[in-house]
Design a protein around this nucleic acid. Sequence first.
DNA 1: AAAAGCCCCTGGATGC
DNA 2: TGCATCCAGGGGCTTT
Length: 271
Amino acid sequence: MPELPEVEVTRLSFANAIAGAGIESVRVGKPLRWPLDIGPERLVGQHVRAVRRRGKYLLLDLDDGILLMHLGMSGSLSFSRHGSAPGAHDHFDLVTSQGLLRLNDPRRFGAVVFVDNETTPQALKLLGKLGMEPLGSDFAVGAFHAGLKRRNSAIKQVLLGGQVVVGVGNIYACETLFLAGIRPTLKASRITRRQAERLHAATRDVLSRAVALGGSTLRDFSNAKGENGYFQLEAMVYGREGLPCKVCAAPVRLMRQGQRSTYWCGHCQKS
DNA sequence: AAAAGCCCCTGGATGC
DNA sequence: TGCATCCAGGGGCTTT
């Protein structure tokens, strides 16, 4: 579930509270996507300076080094004063002077990785090919349109790919295309300037509204304070197969694109 | 280089 | 109630 809004909401919910905290100990549970290939001594005694986000990655800036965290499909973070005993799906604990940061991830597609800086081979492998930040100042219509035109696959797939624009996952790709009135199967290379403008505006609109609403809680997402999100209540097409389109009342359709579900309205998304 | 498929893993919903 | 099947928010890796 964690797409850009959920990751950003998570970041906002604990970044200030953890800033300046000293790391006291670390606990690693079951293996995540990659091993944390350093010992606790590399982290203990350091301080968490800031928490940043790049795409769907969280970057915890330490005195020396960066802890990269990814929530995968089912991950969530909690940050609390007093830590309880870890549950079956709590796979990473960072015990700090200001509270316990804990990663819960049933499916374990998430990851915690330590890198010395953002230019190490591993950091570059993970972050180096990421596209523009949709809520950042570098997200310009011209560059967006140019990036899309270079791709030959369906616009939905290109949005998901993250090489043109980051953070747009399955829910928000569906919602964004609906808002822009664009057919999900349209080849990205055929996007017109007008369509790119609509998609650009829709992306910013959908993602920023989702952040404001605390993200989408479909199953069990919550921010680091345990609070749920409410964007799912405003979804126009995602998860609404067969229900009437909120704009034209035609039944919302479902199809598969790259082994993922695409929800769309055949009437509103014609171009 | 880009595109398409294949996995990683677990839990919940659905169907028989 | 029990068991099998399908599906789920991501994305790196391998193969075309």
